[in-house]
Every structure is written in C-alpha cells, then in structure tokens.
Design a protein around this nucleic acid. Structure first.
Lengths: 146, 146
DNA sequence: GTTATACTCTACTAATATAATAGAGATAAT
DNA sequence: ATTATCTCTATTATATTAGTAGAGTATAAC
C-alpha cells in the first residue's frame, strides 16, 4: 500500500470535515485553501468520496460538503482502502499478475499477507474521531489551523 | 512501500541464488527461465544487485552470478529497501513533498511511521536462509522447481 | 590467438498511473 | 434573473514502471 497525493488529500479533507461535523456544509474552496490542495483536483476527490458514502453534498449558494456519518464511525482504513486499494504491498494475489507459476506455493506470499495484516491492524483501529481529538490538543495541532 | 515487478524479480533471484549457494555461479539465462523473468530485464536487475553488494559475477564462458554473502546474512528487508526504497507508505517525510505546511504537526505522520515500523519488523526478521529452508520443505515448495 | 559464451553498459520505448487543468452544465438561495 | 456552489466529462503533463535493443568487454576452451 502506498499513500498518493490523492489519498493524502482525501484524508486531510475528511479530517477537516470531522472538525466541522455538526456545523453544516463546508465549501470546497475553504477545504482546498486550508489544506493547500488544488481546488479542481479536490472537486474530483470529493465526488469520489461521495460515491464511496463518506460525504454528502449540498448544491446551490449555501452548498458545500459534510460527513455522511459521525467521525467516530469512519475508520481511517476504510478511506485508505477506498482511495488506494488493498493494503497488500504487491498485486500478486490479483488475477492479472503473471509473475508466479503457482502463487499459492510462493514463499513470499505469506510475508506480503503478514504486512497487509499488520497495516490493517493499525489503520482499522483509528477513527476520525480519534484524529479529531488529537488535532484539538494544543501543541500537537493539525497541519493547518481551522 | 509497494513491491514492483522489479522487486519481485530481485527477491526471487536472490532466493534462487540462495538455493545454489556454494555451488558456483548460475547463468542469468537459467535464473530468468526458472522464475519466468524477461532475461534482458533481469540483466539490469542483477547489475543493480551487484552494485548493492548482494551478488557477485563471473564473466566469460563459465560465468554467472552468485551470492556475495551467505543466505543467512542477507535479510529480506535489505533487498526490499535497496530496490523499492523506504518502507513508509508515503513520501511525506522527504524534502520535495509539498502537501503539508508543517509535517511535524500532522496527525497522520505518526501513523505512517507506525506502519513503516511494523513492516520493518517483519521483513528485517527474515533471512534468505529462512526462505531457503521453507522452500525445501516438500509440499510448500517455491514457485518453481529447481 | 581465435572463438564462443556470458556478463556490461547505455540508450531507447511503450504502457500505465498520477496529478492535475479546463470548461460547460445543473442546482438552489436571494 | 443572478450568483455562488456543486457536477460531470474531457484533456494534458509528468513520472514511473517494465521492458527492449544493441554494441561492447572479459574469460575459458580450443
């Protein structure tokens, strides 16, 4: 698993929306500005996150985005997997992978699965509520002040 | 961290050489054929592995490649890091990363470091001697028969 | 010393993924 | 009607990945 800029932006945006949870929609423009994300790129990412059921949108003059669920019910792992795909470090379990004559006998496969499990263990035990709380501790604040 | 085909090929090749350790050099041609790797691509990978100090080569008619060290002294993690780079899932700690105003305050950074540590914990505790032994257990053999 | 064989080195290329950018269209409040 | 906002599709620039091509160099065997 690798975190791309897209994933990085998605996570920062969900965290921003977590900090605003319960206060109505937030403009893309403000989200983009606070996290220093190209606005048009963030538009696309938010449409993705909407299709993934993470956020909702309101159109029109007082529109914007808000979380579809409370921050405590959104795990970091869910968002990461949705944007980045599986946590395995190699695509050798997928059907189009052609590097193994018999992947079930490969001695490396178990190792990649172990890494995948260890990674999941971490990202599936953190919710955006956890991150929100961390952010609000003074001195250990988020990348940007909100 | 993500394992590319190049890394996949490198690891399979080091394992093959581990299985032949002590028996003189092995031809690129044979290594490529057994692991189903494009031969010209493997040439480049082996030159890399040589620069990395993992293998040695012999030129001429009875040439080929052999391990520079015994399999017990080559950790999986060393090879992975040499070919794929750092185990962190994101490049946010590098200087050309521009996604954070102050990365040291980012709540995600610690999480990526945790994943990196967990990954290292796994790959730095496996040597190619371990893999060689696993390979030689009947029924749980390597991807190819040697 | 010639030859065959295998490694060495540099350059090039095709395909794919990533990270955007652009612009027209739809919706809702005023 | 106007304006601000989200929506949707298409296009583009750059980098990475995964090779391919071909000439050059070393060495063992004859």
């Amino acid at each position: 698993m690798r975190i791309t800029y897209k994933g990085d932006y998605a996570l920062k945006t969900i965290l921003d929306l977590s900090l605003h949870y319960g206060n109505g929609p937030v403009f893309i423009h403000d989200l983009a500005e606070r996290a220093d994300i190209p606005e048009k790129f963030l538009e696309q990412i938010l449409l993705d996150l909407k299709r993934g059921g993470f956020v909702e949108s309101r159109r029109g003059k007082v529109g914007g985005y808000l979380l579809a669920r409370p921050p405590a019910q959104i795990k970091l792992g869910e968002v990461v997997r949705f944007i980045e795909g599986p946590t395995e470090p190699i695509a050798c379990t997928e059907k189009d992978y052609s590097g193994c004559k018999d992947k079930y006998k490969c001695v490396f496969r178990g190792i990649w699965q172990e890494i995948s499990r260890a990674t999941s263990q971490i990202i599936d035990n953190i919710t955006f509520e956890d991150l929100r709380r961390k952010t609000e501790v003074p001195g250990s604040s988020f990348v940007y002040q909100i």
